[in-house]
Amino acid sequence: MTLSLLFQHIVNALSLGSLYALIAIGYTMVYGILRLINFAHGDVFMLGAYVAFYGITLVSLPWWAALLVSIVFTAFFGIGLEKVAYKPLRDSPRISIMISAIGASFLLESLGVLIFGGRPKGVPVPDVLSKVLHFGSVSMITVSLLIPLFTFALLGVLLWIVNKTKTGMAMRAVSTDIEAARLMAVDVNRIVSFTFGIGSLLAAFGGIMWSFKYPQLNPLMGVMPGLKCFIAAVIGGIGSIGGAVLGGFLLGIIEIMMVAFLPTLSGYRDAFAFILLIVVLLVKPTGLLGKRQAEKV
């Protein structure tokens, strides 16, 4: 293996890791607040990609405008989804709300098939993003470089919101103890909506970037990334944003490297994430950065 090839793999790994991280954050934030695995999150990611696609192809928006429209739309969509599918079940057993999430996920996928069509669609990647850059013997497309950059920028904003703003403080309060937060006059509904909004926005951004990097859309494109990113969130320690980022990058890097260095195992690529998940759950169920919570009797 040449050094340049290795470098190329690293860039690919970083950009896949970034995309995973972006989606994993949505899972971790929602889980932190509602203790819910939002099964539909992967499908929100798919929706974001489609909306941008139609923005570009149908309305002929410039790609950045389509991106903006899509993430705003998807953010509101995520908020609406919570209100319709999860809010009525907030006081129900956790299994019920999870079943609703599974239902929502299948609903979005089949709506996708119905509305967008089941056949894969080719994405017209904007020239700026598909330009091939050459650094000596290393060549790569711009989007692979831009994805990590955008991701870090978004992460910076997110961390600022969570740690420095009043809303962020309220979010942390709700995720520590929803009842106590309510008693301290935190508007829990608003915080939950806000969380879904942010999570969906990041997922949409991830979906759009995904569709520029792997330029093909289909209504089930969110399923695997969705599951894997949930796994990434668990590996990192669910509830922790830093953990989700760490888990996302870890998973992305390991996957790319595995395919690159052990090509005979590439058929097992999708199983690998699950094996990792089970190992983590059994060995350190709180994940790498998660805090331990003992159950009281």
Binding site: I95, M98, V234, A271, L277, I278, L281, L282
Partner: peptide
């Protein structure tokens, strides 16, 4: 035997994972 030490949603996701692993194994 190993997975049933987990609860609720963790159990759900781990069994989902095993379901997928079985499928991938069969494919390969």
């Amino acid at each position: 035997a190993p997975v049933l030490r987990l609860r609720d949603d963790y159990l759900a996701i781990a069994t989902l994972g095993f379901g997928e692993i079985i499928r991938v194994l069969i494919t390969n």
